Simulated scan of single mutants.
Amino acid sequence: MLIDVHAHLFTAGMLNRHPFWGPAMKVQGLTVGHFSLGTKQRKTAANDQEAEANLLARMTHAARRELMAQRGVDHLVLSTPSHAFMYWAEDFGNTYARICNDELSAYCAQDPAHFSFWCHANLADPQEAAREIRRAVTLLGARGVCVGGANFKGLQAHDEALFPVWEVLAGLDVPIMVHGYNQSIWLGEKHHEDRFETSSIVGDCVDETLFFWYLICGGALDTFPTLKTYITHAGGMAVFQLGRLAELNKAMAPDTRNRRPLLDYLPNFWFDLDVHTPALRRGVVDVVGVDQLLYGTNFGGAYDNGDPTRDLGLDEAQREKIRSGNARRLLKLDVI
């Protein structure tokens, strides 16, 4: 069996919910506030209505199942696209989280054999985020929460203001999925100053690394030792710089609050193999181990690198842990 835990979804009900923030699919790309997601791809729509229709056509159950069949995927775990996290949108950020969770839950309920979801929560408002996570998990069936890696409107993962969120997640025994998001949306009308889409293409990996570093250094895993986190894109840069982080946490970070060596917290983290060469994937396997790896590919996104568990020298039992066994255990997907 193959479970892909990294796939995003827009429904019609998740679009055009706010006169400014949207989010909206337009000819120039996904638009949130002043920001539009740039692309070098040829324009495929004559107007905004056609652009939205094209997007939603790719999001139907039938279209998703067809692509899943082509790629051998049996089950997808869906999440709100990261550009629409709305941490900067004041009260609408809370409203949009509830909208997303209702929409994701309804979508998955139509075909639970093939779809589950990560809920969304507005971490810029930790108390409300904690309440919404509890609602989404206990009433709507969410398997965990998907969050951006850094800068929840000024809050970072080390901030004790976020402890109510970590407390709810630990109490419910559901994991965090960390996916960086485009920080240039914060720039408003100056978002074009983010040259080359850097805050998304490079910044996602920076965000994900910061979450790993800040969650440990801020002492959250000492206060909530059962808290579990899955970091996309092979952990950003955390795995590749793990030795540096571990050594300098002791030698050069006097304000850190972690009570144990940094490497002792690795069992709290899961990663995927969403890097672009087998050599790098083998390195992640060697450092992390097969028991802490998930199958996540940004399914249906901007690229497709095939099965990331191939050509790594893994036996079938090891591959199956990554392809489904670890996700079943972490997300409690045993019913599938």
Rank of each mutant, 00 (worst) to 15 (best):
V73R: 11
R259V: 03
H75T: 07
A45T: 11
V77Y: 02
G283Q: 07
K321R: 10
L169I: 13
R323Q: 06
V284H: 00
W186I: 12
D255P: 02
H191C: 14
M86A: 05
L187P: 12
C100I: 11
L2W: 13
G171C: 12
Q110Y: 00
A51Q: 07
L294V: 03
A113Y: 04
D207F: 00
Q28G: 06
F85S: 05
T223W: 13
A220I: 04
A121C: 03
D204M: 12
R42A: 15
E160R: 15
V168D: 04
S36H: 15
S79P: 04
V288T: 04
G144Y: 15
K250H: 09
A45E: 07
G29P: 05
L248A: 03
A109Q: 15
A62G: 09
A12R: 14
S324C: 11
D311Q: 03
E50D: 12
T256N: 14
C119D: 06
N47E: 09
V5H: 14
R64Q: 11
M59S: 03
C146E: 13
E160T: 13
Y295A: 07
N258T: 07
C108M: 04
L15M: 04
A130F: 08
N54T: 03
R310G: 01
K332E: 08
P254G: 06
H6S: 12
R281V: 00
C146H: 11
R259H: 09
V284N: 01
I133E: 07
E193G: 09
N94V: 10
G235D: 05
G236H: 04
K250Q: 11
E50H: 04
F115V: 04
R259T: 14
K321D: 01
D74E: 05
G289A: 00
C100S: 07
P175W: 12
E90R: 08
E103Y: 00
R319Q: 10
H114P: 09
H233K: 10
F196L: 10
